[in-house]
Amino acid sequence: MRKERWFLVIPIIILISLIFLGPGVGSWFRGFLDGGFVYDGPRLGEAILENEILRAEVYRLEALDEQTFRNSDSVVASVFSKYPFNFKNEILIDVGENGALEFGQPVVFLGGSGLYPRGLLLGKVDKVFRDSSLVRTVFDKEWQSSVRIGKKGYLALLQGGGEPVIRLIPKDAKISVGDVVYSVQPEFPNSLPVGEVSEVGLSSDQVFQEAKLSFPYDFSNIKAVAVLTNND
C-alpha cells in the first residue's frame, strides 16, 4: 500500500489558487522552458557579419517605426506564450481590455526585412481578457483570408497552416517567386503585406494554381507584435 503524502495538500491548494488567480506564474516559468531558438550553425565570422547587418537594420527600422506609427493607432504588445498543442496556432499577448483591444483587430509583426515598414499581417485578435489577448495567427489551420498577389494583384485565398498556402489562383495568372502577397480582407487595412511567394504549382485538381509563402521572420522567435486599433 503506497504511503500517501498528506503534506502535499497545502501545495496542491496553492497550485489550484495559482491556476485560477495567478496564471502569470505559469507563464513566467514557461518563459524559461520555451527557448524559441534554433541554432542553424553559421560560422563565427558569418555570425558576426550577420549581427552587424541586423544591427544596422534595427537602427533603420527604429527610425521608420517612429515615422510610421507616430500618427497611427496601434498598440505594441509582448508575446506572453504560444499555444502548446497541435490543434491551433495562437499566441497570448500582454495587452487586453486595458489597452482597449477588441475582437478582430489585425495584428502585425514589425521588423523582418525593412521592405515592410507597416509590418506584416500575423493574425487577428480572437479573444480579449482583462490584461491579455489571444491572437489567432495565419499559421492556424482555420485561417482563411482574401489576398492579392504581386503587381498585377491576382485575387486568391490564403489558407493557414504550419505552411500557409495561397489557393484558388487563376491558372493563367503569371505568378513569380518573390511576388508580395498582401491582404485585401475587408476588416484589415488594405494591402497589408502577408509574405512572399516561395513556390508555385498547380492544385491537385489542376484547375487552379497554388503557391507557398515565405516569411521574412521566424515565428518561433517572435517576442513582440503590434495590434492595429484603427483600420482606416
Binding site: 506564474v25 505559469g26 516559468f29
Partner: peptide
C-alpha cells in the same frame, strides 16, 4: 497545468 496553460482561463 499551471506551467502549460497558455491563457488566463481553463
Amino acid at each position: 497545468a499551471l506551467i502549460i496553460n497558455w491563457q488566463p482561463i481553463l
